[in-house]
Design a protein around this nucleic acid. Sequence first.
RNA 1: GGGCACGUAGCUCACUUGGUUAGAGCGCCACAUUGACAUUGUGGAGGUAACAAGUUCGAAUCUUGUCGUGCCCACCA
Length: 871
Amino acid sequence: MQKIDLPRAYDPKAYEDAIYTEWENSGFFNPDNLAATGEPFAILMPPPNVTGVLHLGHALENTLMDSKARFERMLGKKVVIIPGTDHAALPTQARVENNLREAGMKNPRQELGREELLRQIREYADQSRSTILSQIRKMGTSCDWSRLAYTFDEPRSKIVNDVFVRMFNDGLIYRGYRVVNWSVLGQSTASDDEVEYVEQEATLYTFRYSANFPIPIATVLPETKLGDTAVAVHPDDARYNKYIGQTFTVDVGAEKSLKIHVLGDKSVDSAYGTGALGVTPAHSATDFEMYQQHPEIGLIPVIGADGKMTEQAGKSYAGLPVKQAREKFVTWLKDQGLLIKEEKITHNVAVSDRFKDEIWPIPMEQWFIDVNKQVPGKGRSLRVLMREAVTTGLGGDKPKKISVAPDRFTKSYLHWIDHLHDWCISRQIWWGHRIPVWTRGEEVYSGTTAPEGEGWKQDDDTLDTWFSSGMWTFSTLGWPDNADFKTFHPTAWMQMGYEIIYLWMARMILFSAYLLDDISFKQVYIHGILRDKDGRKFSKSMKNGIDPLEVIAEYGTDALRLSVIKGIAPGNDARFSYEKIKDSRNFINKLWNVSRYILSMEDKEVPTEPSFADRWILSRLQTVTKNVTKDFENDQFSRVAEQLYDFVWHELADWYLEAAKVAINPKVLRTVLETVLKLMHPVAPFVTEAIWKSMGHAGKDLLLVAEWPKADTKLIDAAAEEKFQKMQELIVHIRNIRAEYQVAAGNWVDVWAETDLGPEVTPVVEKLARVKLHTGMAAEENSIDALAGGVRLMIPLAGLMDVQREAERLSIQQAELIQQIESIKRRLSTEDYVKKAPPALIERDRSQLASKEEELKVVQEKITHVEKLSF
RNA sequence: GGGCACGUAGCUCACUUGGUUAGAGCGCCACAUUGACAUUGUGGAGGUAACAAGUUCGAAUCUUGUCGUGCCCACCA
């Protein structure tokens, strides 16, 4: 045996960093160094937010996109993964401000001022960014670092401004006075998608505005009622519909009176509460819509951006925090005898997903993208374009259709599109792209730079962070003139978690459709989220987080990669546990040892003819190659991992390597190993590259760019597969029959098994018997004879079941067989079955029946035998 | 309230167009052990496929209903 110079166990730490550096230095991460004839294939890395460090979800994403990219690269395509990060405007500023608050600062914006706070945020973001970039390297992602992008860098910012100006000039961006989601703590708006709902106990107050007002109403927010301008009732409600159209003047005890119009509106549920709805246009999005339909009712903002009551709420309320105003108003209602009922209910409170404070609907001037207006030159609205991109293709052009996998997410996307409101893109925070609009008196100018002349003032607001991420697929490629843009857009493949379909995917579709008249990517793969072993989300507060870097340090990157994609179904959440990582680590080690063994056999002589075992493994390898290729093409990553696991462990290692010990064929061993390494490289890049190198591949002959194997149908050998399978059955058969002889033969059993497999098989059976039937412990006593038509073995009795257990097992087996036989007989005597079922099926039944009857006979003989033994 | 999923072994999950005896990993039990690998090997136990009805020669798979679980959206006056 050749000296083995590889360690007994694979140690990832000894290889990973060096291999990554070698890949990087090879230049093959950059598509410019790949064959120019290859089909372009671009994947844009979903840019991680610079709000912190990477977690397991990022490990999953990196594994998915990198596996896909490595597969496509080996197919010969011109592959690029463009890495990048997202400045994540509001989340990042929120994170830094929250940190400052925890450190004792009351109002960071006031205390630090714009410049200093921005400096601190930038510092935090830069640090987070560099951590993230090194983590991406650790995960083995084969991205082209020369194309690194950042949503807030110079080229990206320029594109953001260009696009804004263009949309502004096209009339798609407008400034409007609307009710928006306002976070008092964050001092900024939030889009609908940035609002979470938390269930809370609250008091529902039922009251009348005044004694002369005929309709009672109910509310959990009494203080906002100081801004009511109408009451809406269902037009068919006999109790109230006589008042529709009337206007009442009511005194609400705040040194002012309110004019309340009574409106008829079909959306009012007359069965809920009092059956009437107090309309507060300024502090409810739905009431605001009602106001837009009936502008005559007016709008009275009573809560200000500072979370306190405004002057318009009345003198005695102005300046009060809302909670105090609520108490004051309720007390007043009680004193006036207007409060009819108080009851505890649970309801959903809107909360900012970043600042965690309660969201108040407040009317304000904000910037919006109009999703319903016709896009100049296209004759269709953005909403329609966003719909077309996943249904008919843009403008009915089929190649301009995005395929979403799994398809069910298309449905929820369309559902969302149908309920889409204009997108509020302005934020009142400082970290982000400043809105490129300048005003001077009544003049408004939008441009990429400040207009000429004195007295212009730039808008103070910044853009929603998704405004810039929505351009990611083309801003990274250097739209509009860069060669990359022409080569790689639309990008080939995209992946994301289902939780950002609306936030991100929708916005990418929007911008590409509007600006490029194209889709942003051809395929999108939606994945679920990783949960802990009990199905809970990973979160800081639960302290159940798993740090990918720690996993990598202990188990290696390949083990991490395998464990995150094993057992995931597209779009479904998956559970993640240390058991999975260990299992993957063990498998990586198995592959390592398989390779180590194969490499130690390199100097063995080559037999003149491949054995039936050689032909078997080569044949199986073709099937596996075919299936793995297909699964990669269809993004069935989990199945890729499973198939390779089964093949390497349970076919190659468990059967072939043992069988091959009889007649070692280094050439076949090497072919099989090389193919396996190629097939596994996309999911386990490091260990495969390490083995590849120790096979003598050097310099630029990297597995990274090795050619993907093609299944060779000439090597598919049904005869060899059948022979091998029969041999496996023979081993099982021998194991089963030895029980009959155990007493008769003492410590050793002399087993005779008939077979028509021929003399070639005999030595293999003997070899396998050592492993599978525990004959190895006394090999010299083991004897085997290759007799005509059979195999004769001496097998030790250690480890056999006791007679009683065997008897029980046999009687169960007998009962099952009888049942099965009867069921087949019953089926075969069904007229319809015989008439309608495919003939092959009936044939199968017949032969099965025969073999089962045969089996039953054997079992019954055994039972007789065991019964004798038990005396 | 509207929508989308799901319910398969103790646990986590597969089963690609309905067709042999529903599979795998973990866990459990028994056995083995200087040979590439204890990060190992060989076996075993364990399932009325949530329940019910229907379609079919045949259903885990298709239809309907019931029960249960998860998620998304809307609303919560």
